[in-house]
Amino acid sequence: MSTMSLALADSATMVRRQITHMRRYPSLILQLVGTPVVFLLLFVYVFGGTLGNGLGSGSGGRGAYVDYVAPGILMMAVAAVAMGTAISVAMDMTEGIVARFKSMAIARVSVLTGHVVGAMVQTAVAVAVVVGVALAIGFRPNASVLEWVAAAGVVAMIAFALTWLSVAMGLAAKTVESASNLPQPLVFLPFLGSGFVPTDSMPVGLRWFAEYQPFTPIMETIRGLLLGTGIGSSGIAAAAWSAGIALVGYLWARKLYNRQA
């Protein structure tokens, strides 16, 4: 077998390992999916009536707010899975099994690609659940099939980027506990952007941060694709942020994984 097909075969083996882990440890994925779902229900049913009226567009009320908040909750789900990835990478690294992998003649990256692909599968599950719940409680996108596919692509893009970042964070963490703390801010980043309320309702300093942080253009792009609001330059910004985060995360992770080699 060539080096490339060996790398693919080893990565596939590691992905199977990750999938088995998910099946064995379903409480982790439940928890990861649970957090965004709880926030969705909380914001729609508790705050949604009032917040929806403040949006200043469409019919207002709870129905309008579901539509507005769904992309933010999606990002929250993506970030929550990334947090889980950091934890499972850190757990892996504290076990002797990684020393075993490193002392074997296998494609070195396969351990990490296993985690990344596994995390992408988890993201798909989490996003599907969140979208399902959102649709059930009144989320009414008007997207065409093509726009749905494009939105899924945007989610996959940022999920891929955040996954590499969280793999690096998991490797950088000294303990499993700190691995769960490092990516924590990612889960709350949608709040400090256009995830829950439009940025122009915020005070100046916060608004400036909210408009220029990476999650805002991504949420705006998803919102535009699913609900037909304006996308403008958000699409380009979303792609640039995703590519940048992915590159930094990948390089950081590779450096950490190969240190001392």
């Binding site: 390992r17 088995t20 882990h21 064995r24 440890y25 076990e95 002797g96 099994i97 020393a99 075993r100 002392s103």
Partner: peptide, 13 residues
């Protein structure tokens, strides 16, 4: 082959 000081088995398998 390496059998290290800390058990190198995958506990979830």
């Amino acid at each position: 082959g390496l059998t290290g000081q800390f058990s190198a088995v995958d506990k979830l398998l």
